[in-house]
């Protein structure tokens, strides 16, 4: 398996992992809404995952850039910019005092991310298969 094949295999795994975190966030938010978890615990839990998630995504994006996969990079660039901006403005952490007021936007954001990771998962899978197919003959 060639370089591109390995790269997209790695991307598929990463996307699966990110997908998983997004689903986890969704579940946690619905738990909050049905009072299974209090806002303080929720924010403590979620905030542990925010930076790793952002870092993983940033790493993947940068990897695409240096390996010359420009389409994949351009697909991921908007989300990367969005995440960076959030961190710069210091509002990437979930604030327990405001969580109920900001729950709807948070849910919307996670939902969009979920969709994005799902699509990118299939895109990477396709690219990986494509790379394998191009190698084999």
């Amino acid at each position: 398996m060639g370089y591109a094949g390995w790269l997209f295999l790695f991307a598929v795994l990463m996307a699966a992992g990110l997908l998983f975190t997004a689903v986890f966030f969704m579940i946690m938010f619905s738990d909050l809404e049905s009072d299974y978890i209090n806002p303080v615990d929720l924010c403590n839990k979620l905030n542990q995952f925010v930076l790793p998630e952002h870092t993983a995504h940033a790493f993947l994006t940068v990897l695409f850039l240096i390996s010359g996969q420009f389409i994949a990079f351009l697909l991921n660039a908007p989300l990367l910019a969005f995440n960076v901006r959030k961190i710069m403005n210091q509002n990437h952490v979930y604030d327990a005092t405001e969580i109920f007021r900001t729950l709807e936007p948070h849910k919307k954001e996670i939902f969009i991310k979920l969709g994005f990771y799902l699509l990118s998962f299939f895109y990477y899978l396709y690219r990986m298969i494509l790379a394998l197919v191009q190698e084999s003959p």
């Binding site: 909050l32 809404e33 049905s34 009072d35 209090n38 806002p39 005092t97 969580i99 109920f100 007021r101």
Partner: peptide, 12 residues
């Protein structure tokens, strides 16, 4: 649906 004032919203 939403609360204003001096308190901490502990659950919904």
């Amino acid at each position: 649906s939403s609360f204003h004032g001096n308190f901490f919203v502990r659950s919904t």
